[in-house]
Design a protein around this nucleic acid. Structure first.
Lengths: 168, 168
DNA sequence: GTCTATATTCTGATAGAC
DNA sequence: GTCTATCAGAATATAGAC
């Protein structure tokens, strides 16, 4: 979207925007930072089950809920749709804290192998990505969340068993 | 990339490109069609194991191999990185045939539920996407392919068992 | 703070000579 | 087929009046 269109939507002329922003890149960066903070606040204010694995599921639901309600913010955060845009360290800090929050949920659920965290990220990210790009707002992929989580934790448990065997 | 840059790289001036293309959009479409055909030829000329589930794994390896060797084509085919670009039906036909080829591999491996095909697409797509965007050419995510396939087929078998139980 | 006017640069695309 | 020259439009950004 051009700055001309941005200005039109807020009832201003395009040059007037420069009373509020330094450049278009700075505008993107501010949007990224606000979106990341909003996502972080959203998942932190979510209600989580006492059971750690249900809590992981709750975290997925929180992410899904945010992505459904804020598709544009989700696109800016998770897809690389703006050519050449890289968030500043300050804006990226919120995104990193979001990742840490999710990792903590996984660790509490018994996921200790960093490789398994990578797998989890890829699986949930793949599911969410398919949903958002092919059927935004729908549930064609989201309804498979429980199945995917079940097979993931099956893998985690099997992995742990193997490690135990190796140690005994 | 601007047409000026395209022309520079092939040793021409920018207007001379119009002896070969009708518009920039047509160039994108031709690239998409060629990339989809190249991917289709690649996976069709791949060697597949007799075991149907190993053949599914082989199909994933073929896709991975192509994405590693042709990252730009992979980006054009699988990500929506060019604003406003939609492939023409003629160019998209190859991509559809690729999807059909993969679905056939899955069906041969006992995946009958269309929902499981969706899950498979999401899981493998998520793995490939993470790999390509975060560590192109590396293996940080690709080395988890076997684990993901194993948990996927665990799910498929469990699903089938449940169906059998329901019928008996 | 907001405006008009404009600078500057880049873009895809066309005209016409050779 | 390739070139020079140019068009027409859009983009970000700045200058300066009010």
């Amino acid at each position: 979207m051009s700055l001309h269109e941005v200005a039109r939507r807020v009832g201003l002329r395009q040059p007037s925007l420069y009373a509020y922003i330094d450049s278009k890149a700075a505008l993107y960066d501010a949007m990224f930072g606000q979106a990341a903070k909003a996502l972080l606040d959203h998942v932190k204010s979510w209600t989580y089950s006492a059971d750690p694995r249900q809590a992981v599921r709750d975290g997925c639901l929180a992410l899904w809920n945010f992505a459904d309600d804020h598709p544009v913010e989700g696109q800016l955060l998770f897809e690389r749709t703006v050519p050449g845009f890289e968030p500043s360290p300050a804006s990226y800090a919120y995104a990193q804290e979001f990742l840490r929050f999710n990792t903590d949920l996984l660790v509490a659920a018994g996921v200790t192998d960093p490789g398994d965290v990578d797998i989890f990220t890829a699986l949930i990210g793949g599911l969410l990505s398919q949903q958002q790009t092919n059927e935004p707002g729908g549930d064609r992929w989201m309804r498979h969340l429980d199945a995917v989580l079940e097979m993931f934790f099956y893998h985690v448990d099997r992995q742990r068993q193997t490690v135990m065997k190796g140690r005994s």
